[in-house]
Computed example of a mutant assay.
Amino acid sequence: MNLLATAALALAMSTDAFAVAVGKGAALQRPHFREALRTGAIFGVIEGLTPVIGWALGHWAAPYVQAWDHWIAFTLLGVLGLRMMREGLGGADDDEDDKPTSHSFWLLAVTGFATSIDAMAVGVGLAFIDANIITTAGAIGLSTFIMVTLGVMVGRGLGKLVGKRAEVVGGLVLIAIGSLILYEHLGQG
């Protein structure tokens, strides 16, 4: 794979994480840049590791990963999306001071993993074309780090405008991303 193809792949792999990060940023009480960096780092590391895992699995068990990746992503994103929507619909708009200042590590890690299932599937495909997985995974991780950091800060601005409804929108985005992943995979079958 050449540099342009690697950059395009990295950007494509980070777009769903960006959308989720906007919702995460909107659900927080004026997130600081430090929180955006933390969120970006968690997502970036996970998104950078999953293609390597997929690449390793591709050498061993490609049919199993490709057969279930879309169902795993759909389920995880759907459950997280429904949870966000429930919290967003759980009452009147809260005062800005009632919002959390950060998300838990585990919530971010599960969300990051859910949005990176497609990167794992890409890693499986990269095993078959003998691509340099370290360079590609590094590019995906860096792109995701940047996009998620920016997404949280964009969400910060949107959070002031939309209040609790941001969580509902963020939940809908997660469900839509999971549904799109499922639709694309079932449509290819």
Rank of each mutant, 00 (worst) to 15 (best):
V22D: 11
L82W: 11
P31A: 01
I72N: 10
D69H: 11
L82T: 10
W106R: 05
K24L: 10
F43R: 13
F33L: 15
D94F: 03
P51I: 10
G40F: 03
M13C: 08
V52M: 08
M85C: 13
G90L: 07
G81Q: 00
R86V: 03
A5D: 14
I46A: 02
L3M: 12
D93M: 09
M13T: 02
D97R: 15
A67N: 13
D93C: 07
Y64Q: 13
Q66G: 15
D93R: 13
A19N: 04
P100H: 10
G91D: 13
L9H: 06
V45T: 09
D95Q: 15
E35V: 05
F74L: 12
G88K: 07
V65A: 04
E35A: 04
T75R: 09
G90F: 09
F43W: 08
L9R: 01
L28A: 05
L89I: 03
G44E: 14
S102L: 12
V52I: 12
R83N: 07
L77K: 06
F43H: 00
I46L: 12
L37W: 14
E87P: 02
A8E: 14
A27H: 06
K99Q: 06
A17M: 01
R34P: 04
R83I: 00
D93F: 03
I53N: 07
W60P: 02
G23H: 05
A27W: 14
P100N: 07
G25M: 00
G90D: 14
D16M: 03
G54L: 02
W60I: 12
G48M: 05
P100E: 12
S14V: 08
Q29T: 12
Q29M: 13
A36V: 05
V79A: 09
S104M: 01
E47S: 10
D97F: 13
A92C: 07
E96F: 13
H32S: 14
D69L: 01
L57K: 04
P31W: 08
A5P: 04
A8L: 15
L49R: 08
F33Y: 15
L76F: 09
G44A: 07
R83D: 09
D93L: 01
M13R: 03
A73S: 06
A12C: 04
G78D: 06
T6H: 12
G90M: 11
A73V: 01
P51L: 09
A19C: 09
R30N: 08
A21N: 01
G81C: 05
K24H: 08
V22T: 04
G23W: 11
D95P: 03
A21F: 10
A67K: 09
T75K: 10
L80H: 03
G91R: 08
V79S: 04
T6N: 10
P100V: 02
D93I: 00
F105G: 04
F105N: 08
W106L: 11
G58W: 02
T6W: 07
V65S: 05
S104T: 13
E47C: 02
D97M: 14
G78A: 07
W55S: 01
A41Y: 13
A10K: 07
I42P: 01
G23T: 13
A19I: 02
T15I: 14
L4P: 03
A5L: 13
H70T: 06
T75G: 05
G88C: 08
L77V: 00
G44W: 15
P63Q: 11
R34L: 06
Y64G: 00
G58H: 01
L76E: 02
F74G: 04
A12M: 06
P63C: 05
V79P: 08
M84A: 07
L28N: 06
A73M: 05
G44M: 07
W68N: 10
